[in-house]
Design a protein around this nucleic acid. Structure first.
Ligand SMILES: Nc1nc2c(ncn2[C@H]2C[C@H](O)[C@@H](COP(=O)(O)OP(=O)(O)OP(=O)(O)O)O2)c(=O)[nH]1
Ligand SMILES: [Mg+2]
Ligand SMILES: [Zn+2]
Length: 734
DNA sequence: CAGTTCAGCAAGCAGTC
DNA sequence: ATGACGACTGCTTGCTGAACTG
């Protein structure tokens, strides 16, 4: 028998009145003249009407009967299964157990203190029982890989709540209660009564048992359940921060380790028309078709366009693992990002959150801190840490500072985050920098918002900074929430909700069932507020009104592990800002400020920089995003200048392609890339050509580095070509 | 030699942690 | 100055100048 004919409506929108949206869309992507019938979703009656030129029984057949026959033959399908496909790898469970117990005993002794023993047992049960052994083990290998490449890995995310993760080197955050521990004789001293917020805040002291000069201090006091819940009712990922210089390599390595390109994929993303594009499209359409629309009509049409799929892309770091023996298509189709076969990556067709309960993800993210710390560490080879600062620090065999030995309780470093003292620590006079604070250019601590918070809260310790880190991230965590509670005298910095763990723990303390406390924490941290049942439970338990209100305000909230990890990394960087400023600014301008600076302005010095900043400030909110970014970076430049740092112009013979290099005391040489318009490719080409042979002439430079007219003019204007003959004398000789 | 394609650069935007 | 979550990756677009093509 022949194939069934089925009538379809070529549906692109639901109702006829939405046709205008499709018209605007087609206009927006330049699909101007193509003819289309009105493609709304027709009712059965309308479909029959469309086919009235056929005999009625034929029309009924193709509109009603055939479609139903096909539909009946399709069994019930669930596109994405809701069971977890946990990855498998021979020996992974044993590796996790072995590495954890070995490392724990190495530090805490054998037999282990009961607290440690119990914690590991609980965690291993959950980790292995829920199928996480493989991703723990692989994460360990990824960290190892990065270390081999010479880059530290930044800790990130909720996995820092896992002490097993600490034992395996997946996180530097130690989730145990604050404690001293002697790695030599295994003396341990716990502070489990809440008297100390963080092990890093304990005063330094020698081992009372064996006399070791300095005890280890650890413990951020974090419950494991923030990571995995109580009954495996949460499928978390493992997050790691890698330097951008190795991120792609590590992602590739994860594919290799977990079964190859048939089992590991980058998570895909779906790019849609969002607000700005929608408004742009509506306005352009109105303009080009000579319509004048009321604002309300523009709003209405723009809202109608948002959410329409435009392209596909790559997740910033998520590598999704399909167990060997399972086909990825059981969970999601696979594709290329933006359908680009040359991309080098294959991505999941569905986005991560649509299958997060089915497949595990390793989030191999990029972060500037590891890049900064690598550069700073490297710079200590040529610019060694001065003698008077070396006490308590460790050094690598080649003499570079081991940045992981930087202390977390250095008074001067902590003073950066308090107004007045911050500026003094930097050697600045009162009023020279805003709020007399030292936190600009310290990651996540230097924005205007955080600086004002610092002024109000005056942190003294690592644990204060962890609270501030939590409070300064997420909408309505500080403003319209904790800040008000503190101002009204209802709370202090020590009693507001700083991180999501605090919610679960305090609700349990108030007598709420762990499972419910966990559910409330998850709901609140995702900005979903409280269901009536949750609120009811809280009131019944006697949770104060302000606490319930505070929970409802929160739109997003860090886990404590993440806050601790970020403060740890920030303080390492801050140590350089205090003690080795030239190195610090060299690394900062290289890594963080790359695109925003202009060597022409840098070399002109303070007055010119101030004038430029003033110019941008005048523009207020009319300043472009680029200018706003520049304002941020030039504030750091200004601080550097005030601390006596000088900038030397780009020099054809001395400049690096992309790095600010140190040329003598407090002096930075601008890199080629600091000339706007001269990009990374050109910068690297110049340096490569220079290394092959000295430039004979302007022409020689242009030919060998394959520079275009624009770049040559830039170099000329900046004075880089001074003293270089125009033509190539050798070529004249020929 | 005009027209087309391509690489490099920057900006705008979106998505995600 | 306001009020403010911060920081990251990647896709598209527009522009420029140079290389390629017929
Ligand atoms: N500032 C800021 N940081 C975020 C945001 N979303 C995520 N992060 C940071 C903090 C998170 O702990 C970290 C990892 O993100 P994840 O999506 O993996 O969440 P997290 O690990 O906290 O919980 P999980 O157990 O994986 O569900 O990235 C955000 O909206 N703002
Ligand atoms: Mg996570
Ligand atoms: Zn000891």
């Amino acid at each position: 028998p022949g194939k069934a004919v089925v009538a379809t409506g070529d549906v692109h929108f639901l109702d006829p009145h939405e046709e205008i949206l499709r018209t605007i869309l087609k206009h927006g992507i330049g699909w101007r003249e193509a003819f289309e019938g009105p493609c709304y979703f027709r009712t059965t009656e309308e479909m029959l009407q469309e086919f009235r030129f056929l005999p009625p029984e034929v029309a009924r057949q193709i509109v009603i009967e055939n479609p139903n026959r096909i539909a009946e033959r399709i069994e019930k399908v669930q596109p994405v299964p809701n069971k977890l496909f946990a990855p498998k790898l021979e020996g992974a469970e044993e590796q996790v157990r072995e590495m954890t117990w070995r490392r724990a005993k190495e530090i805490y002794g054998d037999p282990l203190p009961e607290l440690v023993q119990k914690r590991i047992e609980k965690e291993l049960n959950a980790i292995i029982g829920n199928g996480y052994a493989v991703v723990y083990y692989i994460s360990h290998l990824l960290v190892k890989k990065s270390h081999e490449l010479g880059y530290l890995v930044g800790s990130r995310g909720s996995v820092g709540s896992s002490f097993v993760a600490w034992c395996m080197g997946i996180t530097e955050v130690n989730a145990l209660p604050p404690h001293y521990v002697c790695p030599d004789c295994h003396y341990v001293e716990w502070f489990a009564d809440g008297s100390v917020g963080s092990g890093y805040d304990l005063p330094d002291k020698p081992c009372p048992r064996c006399g070791r000069e300095q005890l280890m201090k650890e413990g951020q006091d974090i419950p494991f359940e923030t990571f995995m819940g109580f009954k495996g009712d949460k499928v978390p990922d493992i997050d790691l921060n890698f330097s951008g210089e190795v991120q792609a390599k590590v992602q590739q390595y994860s594919i290799e380790l977990l079964g190859g390109p048939s089992q590991v994929f980058k998570a895909g993303t779906v790019g849609t028309i969002a607000e700005k594009t929608a408004y742009g499209m509506v306005r352009t359409w109105a303009e080009e078709t000579g319509r004048r629309l009321r604002e309300a009509e523009v709003d209405r049409l723009a809202r109608g366009l948002t959410g329409v799929k435009r392209t596909t892309g790559q997740h910033p770091g998520g590598m999704v693992v399909v167990p060997v023996g399972v086909e990825v298509e059981e969970v999601t189709p696979v594709q290329y990002p933006a359908d680009d076969k040359e991309s080098g990556w294959r991505t999941t067709h569905f986005d991560y959150h649509s299958f997060e309960n089915a497949l595990l993800k390793l989030d191999i993210l990029g972060h500037d801190d590891p890049t900064m710390l690598r550069m700073l560490q490297d710079l200590t080879a040529e610019h060694p840490v001065p003698e008077h600062l070396r006490k308590g620090l460790r050094f690598l065999p080649d003499g570079r500072l081991d940045v992981t030995s930087i202390p977390m309780n250095d008074e001067k470093v902590l003073a950066l985050f308090r107004p007045g003292e911050g500026a003094r620590v930097l050697g600045l006079k009162e009023g020279q920098v805003e709020y007399d604070l030292g936190s600009i250019a310290i990651p996540e601590m230097g924005t205007g918002f955080v600086r004002r918070m610092l002024c109000e809260t005056m942190p003294r310790t690592f644990s204060d900074l962890v609270r501030i880190s939590g409070l300064s991230h997420g909408t309505d965590v500080w403003t319209n929430n904790a800040q008000e509670l503190i101002r009204k005298g209802i709370c202090t910095l020590q009693t507001v909700i700083p991180t999501r763990d605090d919610i679960m723990l305090r609700l349990m303390y108030w007598g709420i069932e762990p499972a419910m406390a966990f559910k409330i924490m998850e709901s609140v941290r995702k900005g979903k507020g409280l269901t009536p049942e949750m609120e009811e439970t809280m009131r019944a338990a006697g949770v104060p009104d302000w606490y319930i209100w505070s929970c409802k305000q929160i739109k997003y909230m860090f886990p404590k592990a993440h806050a601790a990890a970020y403060v740890l990394s920030a303080l390492r960087i801050a140590w350089f800002k205090v003690y080795m400023p030239t190195l610090f600014y060299a690394a900062y301008f290289t890594v963080r400020a790359a695109g925003a600076l202009d060597a022409d302005l840098l070399v002109k010095g303070e007055a010119a920089v101030r004038a430029y900043m003033e110019q941008i400030k005048q523009k207020g909110k009319d300043a472009s995003p680029k200018e706003k970014e520049a304002l941020v970076e030039y504030e750091v430049v200004l601080e550097a200048l005030l601390r006596g740092i000088r900038f030397l112009p780009v020099d054809l013979w001395r400049s690096d392609a992309v790095r600010y290099t140190i040329e003598g005391e407090k002096t930075l040489r601008c890199p080629f890339i600091s000339l706007p318009g001269l990009g990374e490719a050109a910068a690297r080409a110049i340096v490569q050509a220079r290394e092959e042979a000295p430039f004979q002439s302007v022409e020689d430079l242009r030919n060998r580095a394959r520079l275009n007219k624009t770049v040559m003019e830039l170099l000329q204007a900046h004075g880089c070509l001074k003293g270089l003959p125009e033509g190539n004398q050798l070529s004249f000789a020929l």
